[in-house]
Simulated assay, not measured.
Amino acid sequence: MKVNILICLGLCLIAMIQAENANPATDVKQCSGSKPFPLEVRVHGCVTPPCNIVKGSTQDFEIDFAVDKYITQLTALVKATTLGIITVPYDLPPEVSAVCPNLMYGAYCPLYPTEDVTYLFSFPIGDYPEIGVKIEIYLVDQDGDTATCFVCDIKVVKNTGGTKVYELNYLN
């Protein structure tokens, strides 16, 4: 009886820790047209856009999406819009734009219809001016079809240095 109670308490503790460490969903918008919308997007550290993104860093996005056809290859593409009028493609390094090697939880390509997967998109933020940007992130398959697409407002911010940790060395 005591063993069962201890096991139950242990499982509850593990569930609480996992829930505490989980990233909540971010409120992203649909792309124009009838492009498929993700099941959920989690921008680490941001629930309600605009998301503050530190320039010179990498921002992680977890993108949950379902596919509706057989997919052998997926590529992440980004468009950035500033001042509400200037839209440009945002070049990504090949290791970031390749979706299949960055699928999470043991998923891999090829993907089959009705399969839902999570892509870890590690978005490199260059040393850009501190401005608001609307980014459109879409995943395109081997045929040029959009597998999923969403829009997220971000604000590029300066690195404030974060918390400093001081170490005392009493041996000297």
Rank of each mutant, 00 (worst) to 15 (best):
Y112N: 11
S122Q: 15
E136D: 09
L103C: 10
D127K: 06
N159D: 15
E130W: 00
K134H: 11
I154S: 04
C109E: 09
L111I: 05
T146K: 02
Y138H: 14
Y138V: 00
D145T: 08
Y128N: 10
V140F: 08
C109Y: 11
K155C: 07
D116Y: 13
L111A: 08
I154N: 03
S122I: 01
V157R: 08
V157C: 04
V133T: 14
V133N: 01
I131C: 00
P113N: 07
Y128D: 06
L120K: 14
F121N: 02
G106M: 03
A107M: 10
D141L: 09
L139I: 04
G126S: 04
K158A: 15
V133D: 00
T146N: 03
K155P: 00
F150P: 10
Y119H: 14
F123Y: 13
K134T: 15
F123T: 07
D153Q: 12
D153W: 10
K158L: 11
F123V: 06
E130V: 07
L103I: 09
S122Y: 07
L111T: 04
V133R: 02
P110I: 03
V117A: 06
P113C: 04
A147K: 01
G106P: 06
C149H: 06
G132P: 00
K134A: 15
T146W: 00
E115D: 10
E136M: 07
F123G: 06
A107F: 09
Y138M: 14
Q142N: 13
L111C: 11
P110F: 04
G126K: 02
Y108I: 09
I125T: 05
T160Y: 11
Y105L: 11
C109L: 11
V157Y: 01
V117C: 08
E115M: 12
T148R: 04
P113I: 06
E115L: 08
T118C: 01
M104K: 15
P110Y: 05
I154W: 01
P124W: 03
D116G: 06
T118L: 03
Y105E: 14
F150A: 14
Q142I: 06
C109T: 05
V156Q: 03
I154L: 12
T118G: 01
T146F: 00
G106W: 07
P124D: 04
A107N: 14
I154C: 02
Y128W: 12
V140N: 07
E115A: 13
V157G: 01
A147W: 05
T146G: 02
C149G: 04
T146I: 15
Q142A: 09
G132K: 08
K134L: 15
Y138F: 14
V157M: 07
I135Y: 12
F121A: 07
K158R: 14
I137K: 09
F150H: 10
